[in-house]
């Protein structure tokens, strides 16, 4: 029986020390797990960082990924953020070709998607967009026909909603 692979968003609190990210990432490459996106930064406690990884795996592989990550000495806490209990966002900077005939259309799209124009030139806009994965994909597909010159995406971050 071959199970389908699904996207999972895992976040972990880790010791903020040199080499820790390399342990986490090395585990994925060494064991043949995959990484869709990766995001790392310090938390409010400077001794602790939060790593968020989006991965694709079937349930057995996901179980191994989680167990293997927990086994790393520097991983303090790990949570699967998949599902509605967590809020997820990613951000993108999109440099888009802006010829005269498409400038209005781009501004309209930016407005609909609540994006900001952070840089303007005679031939381009740079748009700052945030949202969940679905929104980003939709925005990108609408902008694509106008000509995306460059794009930088952060990958997902996530937080669990506090219990009521």
């Amino acid at each position: 029986m071959i199970e389908t692979e699904e996207k999972h968003i895992l976040t972990m609190l880790v010791d903020n020390k040199p080499g820790v990210l390399s342990r986490v990432v090395g585990l994925f490459s060494g064991k043949g797990f995959n990484i869709d996106s990766l995001c790392v930064a310090e938390t409010i406690d400077p001794a602790v960082s939060r790593i968020t990884i989006v991965t694709q795996a079937n349930s057995l592989v996901l179980e191994q990924i989680e167990k293997q990550l927990r086994k790393l000495i520097n991983v303090i806490k790990l949570r699967d953020m998949t599902g509605p209990r967590a809020v997820k966002r990613e951000m993108a900077l999109i440099c888009i070709r802006a010829k005269r005939e498409s400038r209005d259309e781009i501004l309209r799209l930016a407005d609909i998607f609540r994006c900001k124009i952070v840089d303007v030139g005679p031939q381009y806009y740079i748009i700052e967009a945030t949202g969940d994965r679905g929104k980003m994909e939709a925005l990108i597909s609408l902008l694509k026909p106008m000509g995306i010159k460059k794009i930088a995406r952060t990958g997902s971050i996530a937080l669990y909603r506090e219990p009521d």
Binding site: P18, G19, S22, R23, G26, G30, I73
Partner: peptide, 14 residues
């Protein structure tokens, strides 16, 4: 050596 042995030690330190 810490980089080299990361995947074949239980843990390592510099």
């Amino acid at each position: 050596i810490v980089g080299i042995t990361r995947p074949c030690t239980k843990h390592n330190y510099l």
